[in-house]
Amino acid sequence: MTITSTHVDVRDLVVRYRRRTALNGLDLRLGAGVHGLLGPNGAGKTTLMRVLATVVRPASGGVTVLDGDVTGDARLRQVRRRLGYLPQQFGYYPRFTVREFVEYFAWLKEVPRDRIPAAVDRAIERAGLLDRADERLKRLSGGMLRRAGIAQAIVNDPDVLLLDEPTAGLDPEQRVDFRELLRVLGVDACVLVSTHLVEDVAAACADVTLLHEGRAVFRGTPAELAARGAGGDGDSPIERGYTAVLRAARSA
């Protein structure tokens, strides 16, 4: 038996919300690098993020994150120390400053106490928010709030980083900076980015997974997705590839 451990290993994953099936037999293996997650609304992107973030438990199937089975309780705590998660929408305590917000999550993630101040400083610097570090969250714009969210996600140097629509609210310049950060983070961590902005994927991701109705209907490089573009609609080759793959999945 060969054991090749990966960061994320999902097998036959099923998640149901009441009567709706959000994920329906999904298989996915991810190693280090930046991975894009594409798909129309309701395809199951956010649900997959939440399962990998150990926020919800699946109805059935196997989910292994960092060699720990997260459908059970035994390894949950160890795995969670090495996770970073930025949900699509996240609330915040409005009176916290950016620094306090990031510090709060450093404590919750059980970062060693003597490392916390430097780790918080570095996370805020990497997210490009140093000049606003002591501003209260309620005074920040949407784009800055998103960057505060990114800072808390990376404060523990996670091995698995889950970012759900991280570029929402960022202006074009900030998005370019963010893609650069993504590439750096992806050098030695597994970064999963869900987005509806196809150009983000093309610019920063090594590979793309396209979800449709709770299943993966495509897995490959952005170039391979673009190559499927014949017969699809869109402004760029990769958009045409995206629509063509979806169209094929719907008619199948």
């Binding site: 939440r50 150990t54 969670r80 998660y85 919750l108 059980e110």
Partner: peptide, 9 residues
């Protein structure tokens, strides 16, 4: 949502 993904949450 984020708190639920942390070990001390």
């Amino acid at each position: 949502e984020i708190v639920a993904s942390t070990p001390a949450g």
